[in-house]
Write a protein that binds this DNA or RNA. Structure first.
Lengths: 225, 225
DNA sequence: CAGGGCTTCAAACGTATGTTTCAAACAGAC
DNA sequence: GTCTGTTTGAAACATACGTTTGAAGCCCTG
């Protein structure tokens, strides 16, 4: 069928261009010429450029949030009443992301960058769309974080969650540039899984840092109960 | 004198609008009307929109990098040959930022957001400008970080520095929205100093996390060895 | 007060954008 | 084959943008 072919080609091209250049910096003409479709096809199939942006996110986020919900379900069931630990919660999220079926070799990294852009490049319509459409799994993640860090005050936890989001979104949003630098300068291949494997311990350690630290921290915290 | 008045009003308006909306999303007409100057004034005084963006960064970054250099000088002198610790290095940076003379009540947070945008919103010209103009103090900071974390492999250190940059830039770049939420929901005033006081321990703990933290996630997928 | 270098101003220029139009091409049902 | 609804195509539309222009205004020196 011709339609879904055109629609998918537009989504593929848009996803990649948005990730590379941002939303405002990507024109419909770039998208349609990369997708080898007519300019009018975007407005015909999606209605507007903003609606196309939403569709790009929905194509990934809808199955992802379903995967995430079941991962949280399994986790809570496995914990049998007890709240999951911080590490378990973070890994549930990470694994859900990594296990998503990947459309191409660029895989999930493109989409991580898009999420980072969505948060940073605060396009009003996009944030509203994401909150409205995918607010529930996000709230659930927040609740799990809260239960996993009962020792933190609300204010401390609030800020540390922001720091975690920042490290994640920013790292992911720096596209493949970071990985390229690493490959060229140190000759190291780096997959998204390996980045995640480094990021999660960093986040967990920061999240559980001793408060009001003024002196170099001894390597004493062993968070996993 | 009229000139510096116009130039400063343009810089003030541009700084705030860029921070609020991003670079591409801010038009010269928005800037000039907010600054109450003629549209042509930007091209007259700065030459182009890109040059205006550079000027906005230079106005803050030039005195800041000078302050930072002396802070590092003092720190290294105080340590008398021994490499400064991670906490000392982070605090030297943080204090230099916080102590910068602030133009208005929004203070440094606007500029932090601009730095975050500069990194994320990959405007080629901007990154080139920043690297060329302010690469030296950045390299020095990186060198200090390396000496403060000799236990880390190059690859680990590389990624953890990215995580730190991310948490910092992202948090700062979330403008006053985060602080507003906090004030409304929890009724807490939060200054930039208090955020920094929470951020630095988080970063230091993450930076010094035990490597290859074991994961409580069951079956399959063990993180990199 | 006359001249000349800055600075401001209103207006216009050329270009790129998102969107719309409407005819042509196509698909499947009868 | 013919008809009907859907999809594509080339072209145009209106608008917003960064930039340029050239005249007017300003301020200081002589």
């Amino acid at each position: 069928m011709a339609q879904s072919d055109t629609v998918d080609r537009i989504l593929d091209a848009a996803e990649e261009l948005f990730a590379d250049r941002g939303f405002s910096e990507t024109s419909l003409r770039m998208i349609t010429s990369k997708a080898k479709v007519n300019l009018a096809a975007v407005n015909y199939h999606f209605g507007s450029k903003n609606a196309l942006i939403h569709a790009v996110f929905a194509r990934f986020l809808t199955p992802f949030s379903a995967t995430l919900e079941t991962a949280f379900d399994e986790l809570e069931e496995r914990c049998d009443g007890q709240p999951p630990t911080l590490n378990q919660t973070l890994w549930a999220l990470t694994e859900s992301a990594v296990r998503m079926p990947q459309r191409n070799e660029k895989g999930i990294s493109i989409f991580m960058r898009l999420l980072g852009l969505a948060y940073t490049q605060s396009q009003g319509h996009l944030r509203k769309f994401l909150e409205q459409e995918y607010g529930d799994p996000f709230s659930r993640f927040m609740r799990l974080l809260k239960e996993a860090t009962p020792q933190l005050s609300s204010v401390d936890r609030y800020w540390r969650i922001q720091f975690m989001l920042g490290a994640t979104a920013f790292t992911m949003s720096s596209s493949d540039a970071l990985r390229d630098i690493l490959q060229n300068k140190l000759g190291v291949e780096t997959t998204i899984q390996e980045i995640a494997a480094r990021l999660v311990p960093f986040l967990a350690a920061g999240m559980q840092a001793e408060d009001k630290m003024l002196i170099p921290v001894p390597d004493s915290h062993t968070p996993v109960a």
